[in-house]
Design a binder for these strands. Structure first.
Length: 592
DNA sequence: CTAGGGTTAG
């Protein structure tokens, strides 16, 4: 009697899983129990899979207890599904225990265990199981290789191992397995080996939407957004099944590119493909318009989306911060809260940056209840944003309090505090903290923190120290100086009165950046005592051609030196040129 | 069992 109805339940649960209605699958299972039945090996594989997809560890453990009560411990299918469930619920220890206690194992059991370690980027353990699997005479499948490679993508030292799987897979005859190629392509992109990724991509005879998504990411890392657009046009002609994810990647490249006309045409493409209302796509579109400097179109699109998710709201709020409209960002955050949609961590980080931009502590205090309410208080990124916010509001002590209480500090946390001291005029404290950070060998300073360090030297007038850091930045840490670094050094040297050194420094800067350094040079010259207009005369043409602002500075310096005729000349040249403004983007009407 | 994405602080 029991067999027939259970079979019906099993079919119902199976089809509910297939449609992605995992919660309903669990409901069906509890109805089955209520009807006086219990599960069999098929019921358990389906129900456990639903728990895995929902990442519901609690339900999964409950179902496992039923499995044990009914004596299904030796069923390899049920046990493997439980193993995968624990892996998907990130309970590696329970997965491992189950695996060790399995009376018999299948290839899929081994694959699941390897994949469990790969997901946690425990590369060595995943390879150890791979070797053990082979010594137990199990023949790895292409899925085994895919899991191993994806594990390598996440650990810093596993590139060679990943490449060896590539060879191994080819030997076993998986050379036509697209998923394996795609996972290797992902590995190269994650390791920033974009050239290798591109040559692999070029050699691939079969490509899917996933292949293109991955290589888009690679080109975006290179900053070659136009290549992304070119490739995208290729797939449009090839009629590869395009999904929302490919578009999301295309859209983020357009955001990086920052060209409004291209952004607008991408939007019409989305509308034509019926993808503009996809929740995943919408947030990217808002971000794209905001990064292209068209906050009006961003808002117009935002308003047109009927089902707004957290990402969309966050994207719009971030857009306002980016557009220097942080007050509006705060208003929009209030609107979001009033819809009862809970903010996520990134919303909080974004809104804190809005408070920082305004420099208003009272605005920030209203955010605190949300930080408490949603339990972001102990999150490192949130704390870093709080430090930054207190810094910009002038509450140095509050920033220090948070920083000192951090149990673990990453580069961003250190550098926000270093910046906080520098911003509040405490050059000495800033540099002391930087030196303390360097003692921690696990932290590698980057271009951003060096900008703060150099500006701290600048603030404190520490010429020798500044030069020392500028050199070690390049030689010891291999960081190419940016315009900000150069301009900081010019400011430092000139304001300390080292006009000749400053000029010599400028002459050694790559020519494409050099012309932009005259403005910081002249500004510093105006406040330093060693101002001598003759110093810059050999470069006069370059100085004058760069911007109208330089003429104003030159006129000011001449006047302060009592060279009234020069001052008058510079003033007149401004009138002749006219106060030219930078060419800006004109806003295009998109929807009407 | 298996490959790709979106909002983000210093």
């Amino acid at each position: 009697m029991q067999f027939a109805p259970r079979r019906k339940w099993n079919l119902l649960i199976k089809s509910s899983n297939k449609d992605g209605f995992f919660l309903e699958s669990l409901d069906l299972y509890s109805s089955l129990l209520k009807s006086g039945c219990h599960g069999d090996h098929l019921t358990f594989t389906f129900v456990v899979k639903a728990c895995a997809q929902l990442a519901s560890l609690w339900s999964g453990r409950k179902v496992q207890s039923h499995v044990i009560l009914l004596g299904f411990q030796s069923d390899v299918f049920v046990q493997t599904s439980l193993l995968d469930m624990y892996s998907k619920c990130s309970s590696l220890s329970e997965a491992r225990q189950l695996f060790d206690e399995m009376p018999s194992k299948s290839v899929v059991s081994w694959n699941s265990m390897i994949s469990a370690y790969a997901k946690e980027f425990q590369t060595q353990e995943s390879f150890r199981h791979f070797n053990e699997m082979r010594s137990c005479c199990f023949r790895p499948t292409s899925s085994t290789c895919v899991s191993l490679v994806s594990g390598c993508s996440g650990s810093t030292s596993a590139l060679q191992q990943g490449q060896s799987v590539h060879c191994f897979g080819t030997k076993l005859g998986f050379h036509s397995d697209l998923r394996l190629w795609n996972s290797i392509l992902t590995m190269y992109v994650r390791f920033n080996l974009i050239d290798d990724a591109i040559s692999l991509f070029d050699s691939m005879k079969e490509r899917s939407a996933i292949t293109y998504t991955t290589i888009f990411g690679g080109y975006a890392k290179l900053g070659d957004c136009l290549m992304v657009l070119n490739l995208f046009n290729q797939i449009r002609l090839k009629q590869i099944g395009l999904d929302a994810i490919v578009f999301v990647n295309l859209i983020s490249s357009c955001a990086l590119l920052g060209r409004l006309l291209i952004a607008s045409s991408v939007l019409s493409l989305l509308i034509r493909n019926g993808l503009d209302c996809e929740p995943n796509v919408a947030a990217a579109v808002v971000n794209m318009f905001a990064k292209c400097g068209d906050i009006f179109s961003a808002r117009k699109f935002f308003d047109s989306v009927t089902k707004k998710d957290v990402l969309l709201w966050t994207s719009m709020i971030g857009g306002y911060v980016h557009a220097d409209l942080s007050r509006t960002a705060l208003d929009l955050f209030e609107d979001m809260i009033s819809t009862d949609l809970p903010p996520n961590k990134i919303t909080i980080i974004t809104i804190l940056s809005a408070c920082a931009a305004i420099g208003s502590l009272s605005a920030a205090e209203q955010i605190f209840e949300h930080i408490d309410a949603y339990g972001f208080k102990s999150d490192l990124q949130t704390q870093t944003s709080l430090i930054h916010m207190y810094c910009k509001c002038g509450c140095l002590e509050r920033a220090e309090e948070i920083f000192n209480a951090l149990s673990h500090k990453d580069l961003a946390a250190w550098s926000s505090m270093i910046n906080c001291y520098a911003f509040n005029g405490k050059g000495e404290e800033s540099l002391a903290l930087f030196k303390e950070m360097l003692k921690d060998k696990s932290i590698k300073p980057d271009a951003v923190v060096f900008t703060d360090v150099l500006s701290a030297c600048n603030h404190y007038g520490l010429v020798e120290e500044g030069l020392k850091f500028f050199t070690s930045m390049q030689l010891q840490y291999g960081i190419e100086p940016s315009k900000e670094h150069y301009s900081c050094m010019v400011d430092l040297l000139s304001r300390a009165g080292y006009i000749d050194s400053s000029l010599e420094f400028i002459s050694r800067v790559p020519v494409q950046l050099r012309s932009q350094l005259w403005t910081p040079f002249l500004s510093a010259l105006r406040t330093s005592n060693g101002a001598q207009l003759e110093n810059i005369l050999p470069n006069r043409w370059e100085v004058e051609s760069e911007s109208t602002g330089n003429h104003v500075l030159l006129a000011g310096i001449s006047a302060s030196l009592g060279k009234w005729k020069d001052a008058r000349d510079f003033r007149m040249s401004i009138d002749k040129r006219g106060l030219r403004k930078e060419a800006g983007w004109s806003r295009t009407e998109l929807y009407s």
